[in-house]
């Protein structure tokens, strides 16, 4: 099976003197569903950031989607990011844009035609049960609704890799259910690799998954 993420001897941190992840080695298969857990401050989000190039590799090697992340240039990084869907705990929606335009963002960046993009947005807003809110601005929505918009945006361009950082951290039960349902659907129906950083794996989660845990800068697979 192809490896979509491959780490060897990987060290990560915000300064050279203070590593958060140290000499980690793991491989993530294409099309798999991955949970990464760990205590607060253990380095879960740091690891996820390195997957989309928001944090440089201190030492070792990291390959994402066949792209070497060591000293990656902006052109290559943009190319890689156009094939990734990201969901953050704080949603990261553009405040001055409508819900519709926020969901359309990856499609516009990928150069899809306007009519194709509009159809896709309509479909996705239907999936997240927000079709009636399309003309509203993020501040007019609840936290759960904003996260559903972020989820629709992450899926809009059919990414090969979905990275989610505590996607249901602050959400109500209904929104959490919708988010998990969409992540599972992306994995099983669209064959996207999903990597979720979370504190807790939902007990009712039905899709086969792999579980990695981070502790003291070390990553290991939980069987």
């Amino acid at each position: 099976m192809d490896k979509i993420i491959l780490a060897e001897n990987l060290s990560l941190g915000y300064t050279r003197h203070e590593t958060i992840i140290s000499k980690a080695a793991f491989a993530i298969d294409s099309g798999s569903f991955i949970f990464i857990t760990g205590a607060s401050g253990s380095g879960k989000s740091t690891l996820l950031k390195s997957f989309f190039g928001a944090l440089p590799v201190l030492s070792g090697s990291l390959t994402v989607g066949g792209v070497d992340m060591n000293g990656i240039g902006s052109k290559k990084l943009n190319f890689l990011r156009r094939h990734i869907g990201i969901v953050f705990q704080d949603y990261k929606l553009v405040k001055e844009w409508t819900i519709e335009k926020n969901v359309m963002l990856p499609l516009l960046i990928n150069g899809y035609a306007r009519d194709v993009s509009e159809l896709q947005v309509e479909k996705l807003l239907g999936h997240v049960k927000l079709s009636h809110q399309r003309g509203k601005y993020p501040v007019e929505l609840s936290g759960g609704e904003q996260q559903r918009v972020a989820m629709a945006r992450a899926l809009s361009h059919n990414p090969i890799l979905i990275l989610a950082d505590e996607p249901t951290g602050n959400l109500d039960e209904y929104s959490s259910k919708v988010i998990w349902g969409l992540l599972e659907g992306a994995n099983t129906q669209l064959d996207a690799t999903v990597v979720v950083v979370t504190h807790h794996i939902p007990e009712t989660f039905g899709t086969p998954y792999k579980h990695y845990h981070i502790e003291h800068g070390d990553i290991y697979e939980v069987s």
Binding site: N78, L80, I84, I86, K92, V94, E96, R153
Partner: peptide, 10 residues
């Protein structure tokens, strides 16, 4: 903020 978010999607 907007430029950051756009950068995240390439």
């Amino acid at each position: 903020e907007r430029m950051n978010i756009m950068a995240l999607f390439g």
